[in-house]
């Protein structure tokens, strides 16, 4: 049996990027190479990992979710208000929000609408709802949630443990189960899936509901970390999640996705910000440099594809 080298290198690209970043950070700041250091470094990564997985579920069927940032903000705002004051109603709101995500998927499928437009519209809806729920910054995250994200498991920082668990669960669900195969197939050749007797409506709703669930988890953990919220909390999550998923090897079309890659991509996006801070780079430049790193990795991947194509 021969090994497909191109596939191997391609799959390990996000891991290589993460390793390179970590090495650079440790070199700049050796004290980061400790339990406490890693904990601080990766503190913010858990909600980003969830948001990136949400984006990846939507990418699976060839759509793009521009509403995830607004959605995560909305969830965080509900968490610091309703979930803290009236837990039952808070849970109901969050469940309804996931159902809302599935409904958006149904709308896109039934009316054959461009997902990018519908989710862009939804992002305003979510931000609007967030402002209604929490008109001014504040609120208080429930104590149990704050305690949960501050857990200090022995030996391995929570963020790393969470990343591993989330990545493996996502991989099992989407890449290994017989159900996941149908979900991915829908992104590869929807017509073939329909011809085999599957319902594209149910597939899209399932994927959007999964995205909604990930969005809720992102909002909860984000609120847990920040302990309060405001209506601009997760503005950048939309682009961060897209960048993380694509960096992790997912593609915009064709149902090529990778949950483990998405988790790694999210970690890279988180660490890139810290790395630039360690470089004492003017914060005004940080986003630009973050973009440059993204372009660099994508260019590497394109180069790999071209080299392989000429073989």
């Amino acid at each position: 049996m021969t090994i497909d080298w191109r596939e191997l290198v391609r799959a390990s690209l996000p891991a290589l990027a993460l390793t390179a970043l970590l090495v650079a950070i440790f070199w700049l700041q050796p004290r980061a190479m400790s339990y406490q250091g890693l904990n601080l470094l990766l503190n913010l990564s858990i909600p980003i990992v969830f948001a990136t997985l949400a984006q990846m579920f939507v990418l699976t069927v060839g759509d793009l979710d521009l509403g995830i940032g607004g959605f995560v903000t909305f969830v965080a705002c509900v968490t610091v208000t309703w979930l803290a004051d009236a837990p039952l109603i808070g849970v109901l709101i969050l469940v309804a929000a996931i159902a809302g995500y599935a409904a958006v998927g149904a709308l896109i499928e039934l009316r054959n609408l461009p997902a990018i437009v519908v989710t862009l519209g939804m992002s305003f809806v979510w931000f609007g709802l967030a402002v209604i729920v929490l008109p001014s910054p504040g609120g208080r995250t429930p104590e149990w949630l704050i305690a949960a994200v501050r857990l200090r498991p022995p030996g391995i920082p929570l963020a790393i443990l969470a990343a591993i668990v989330i990545g493996l669960l996502g991989h099992l669900l989407l890449m290994r189960t017989s159900m996941g195969v149908v979900l991915r197939g829908a992104g590869g050749n929807p017509r073939a899936i329909t011809r085999a007797g599957w319902s594209m409506l149910r597939i899209r709703m399932t994927l959007y509901a999964l995205a909604g669930l990930m969005g809720v988890l992102a909002g909860l953990t984000l609120a847990g970390i920040t302990t309060s919220a405001d209506a601009n909390l997760a503005l950048r999550y939309t682009l961060l999640s897209i960048a993380g998923a694509i960096l992790g090897g997912s593609q915009f079309t064709g149902g090529r996705v990778s949950p483990i890659g998405a988790v790694l991509g999210a970690l890279v996006m988180t660490l890139a910000a810290s790395f630039l801070a360690f470089l004492r780079l003017n914060p005004d430049w940080q986003i630009g440099v973050q973009g440059a790193i993204l372009i660099l990795v994508l260019a590497l991947r394109a180069l790999l594809d071209r080299v392989a194509g000429e073989r």
């Binding site: 195969v181 149908v182 991915r184 590869g188 073939a192 899936i193 329909t194 011809r195 085999a196 064709g254």
Partner: peptide
């Protein structure tokens, strides 16, 4: 389609009905 496949009727269309992003085995599962 389900009625047809449940009765053992299969069709190989001229333009192929495989998902290019899935493996051979995964396409069989579909």
């Amino acid at each position: 389609v389900t009625t047809a496949t449940d009765r053992g009727i299969r069709c190989v269309f001229q333009e192929l009905s495989l998902c290019p992003n899935l493996t051979v085995a995964e396409n069989t599962r579909i």
